[in-house]
C-alpha cells in the first residue's frame, strides 16, 4: 500500500476537496493507496512517519506552516506542491500587497465590522513578513498548479503516480481548451470585467476584456471562459511564460492585446488597471515570477 498524506497550510481546503471530487476514481486510488493523514477528512493531529506521497496545499504564511512543511519533508519520500498557493503563492499571496502590520491590524484592531481587540501574543503562530509558496522553504518533488487542480487532472496524475508510472497530461495554456474564437479586431478601449456583457463564442481579448487565458497553464477545460468569465489566471503562468526570462504575465497580455487590437503597447499599458489583482492575482507570492527582470511584482509588494 502506498501511503498518502494531505496537508493544508495557509489554504482554503479547496485543494483537498478537489481530491475528494475524484468520485468513483477515488476507489481506484484507494485500491492501492491508503490515506494516512488528512485533517480535512479525519481526526488526526500528528504526521505519521514514512509517508510515500505527501500532498501539500496552501502557502506558508506563519511559523506553524513553516514547521509543518519541514516536518512533512523529513517524513515523506515524495512531496508534491498541490494547487497554485503551494506552487506560486496563489490567492493568499495577495496579502503581500499589504505589510504584515496592516494585515494584523485589519484582523484584530482596525476592522470596522468587529470590536477592536489587542493582538494575541501566544497560541496564535506568528505571521511571517511575506507569504511564501511551499518551494521557498523546502525541496519539492512535483508541482501541480491549479485552483484547485481539476478532478480529471488530479485523477490522471495521482493514479499513475501510485502505480509508479509517469503521468502523461497536457501542459498547454487555457486558450487550448477554450472554445471561443480569437480574431483580430481593431479597438482602442479596454473594458473592466464588470463593464457590459461580453459576446458569446468570441474571444474576450478580441472584445477588449483582459483575459489571462493565453499566459495561464490550462487543463481546466476553459470552465470560466465557457461560463462567460474571462480567465483570472488561477492555473499559474503557462510554461512558456515561466521558461523565458523576458516573458511575464503582464507583458504577455499587453503584447497579445496590442497584437489583436492594433493598439500601440504603450496605450494598452496606460489602460491596464489594478495589476496586483487583475494580472498577478495568483502569482504575486512567487519568487521565480518576481525575479524576472520584466516583472512588475517588486513594485507592488510591501515587505
Amino acid at each position: 500500500m502506498v501511503t498518502i498524506a494531505l496537508e493544508t497550510l495557509a489554504s482554503c481546503s479547496g485543494c483537498e476537496i478537489s481530491i475528494l471530487d475524484l468520485h468513483e476514481d477515488l476507489l481506484k486510488l484507494l485500491e492501492k493507496a491508503e490515506l494516512v493523514y488528512a485533517p480535512v477528512l479525519m481526526d488526526v493531529k500528528e504526521l505519521p512517519d514514512n509517508i510515500d506521497i505527501a500532498i501539500v496545499s496552501g502557502s506558508v504564511r506563519n511559523e506553524e506552516n513553516k514547521e509543518r512543511l519541514e516536518e512533512l519533508r523529513t517524513k515523506s519520500s515524495i512531496l508534491i506542491a498541490y494547487g497554485t498557493c503551494a506552487c506560486y503563492g496563489g490567492i493568499t499571496g495577495m496579502a503581500d500587497l499589504y505589510t504584515r502590520d496592516e494585515v494584523t491590524s485589519r484582523t484584530y484592531s482596525d476592522n470596522p465590522s468587529t470590536e477592536s481587540a489587542p493582538l494575541p501574543n501566544e497560541v496564535v503562530p506568528e505571521l511571517l513578513s511575506i507569504v511564501h509558496p511551499a518551494a521557498d522553504f523546502t525541496e519539492i518533488d512535483g508541482f501541480i498548479p491549479g485552483c484547485p487542480p481539476k478532478e480529471q487532472l488530479t485523477g490522471d496524475i495521482l493514479i499513475p503516480l501510485i502505480n509508479n508510472e509517469a503521468p502523461d497530461v497536457p501542459k498547454k495554456s487555457v486558450c487550448a481548451d477554450c472554445q471561443r474564437e480569437m480574431e483580430h479586431v481593431e479597438y482602442d478601449k479596454i473594458h473592466r470585467r464588470v463593464e457590459g456583457s461580453p459576446e458569446d463564442g468570441k474571444c474576450f481579448l478580441s472584445q477588449g476584456y483582459v483575459c489571462l487565458g493565453s499566459v495561464t497553464l490550462g487543463r481546466c477545460g476553459g470552465l470560466c471562459t465557457d461560463a462567460g468569465v474571462p480567465c483570472h489566471g488561477c492555473g499559474g503562468p503557462s510554461l512558456d511564460v515561466l521558461r523565458e526570462p523576458s516573458h511575464d504575465i503582464y507583458n504577455g497580455v499587453i503584447k497579445r492585446i496590442a497584437h489583436l487590437s492594433n493598439m500601440p503597447e504603450k496605450d494598452v499599458e496606460k489602460q491596464m488597471y489594478d495589476l496586483g489583482h487583475v494580472i498577478y492575482g495568483f502569482v504575486i507570492g512567487s519568487t521565480i515570477m518576481e525575479d524576472k527582470l520584466v516583472s512588475k511584482i517588486p513594485q507592488l509588494v510591501k515587505k
Binding site: 512535483g142 508541482f143 498547454k172 480569437m182 487565458g213 526570462p245 497579445r256 521565480i288
Partner: peptide, 29 residues
C-alpha cells in the same frame, strides 16, 4: 496563444540566459 504547434528536431538551447531555479521548477511541473 494556445501553444498549438510543436517543432520536432530543433535545437532550442540558444538562449543567452538560463535561470536554473526556473528550470528546476519547470522540470517538476
Amino acid at each position: 496563444p494556445s501553444q498549438a504547434m510543436t517543432h520536432r528536431d530543433i535545437h532550442v538551447a540558444k538562449r543567452l540566459y538560463i535561470d536554473r531555479k526556473v528550470n528546476d521548477v519547470l522540470e517538476k511541473i
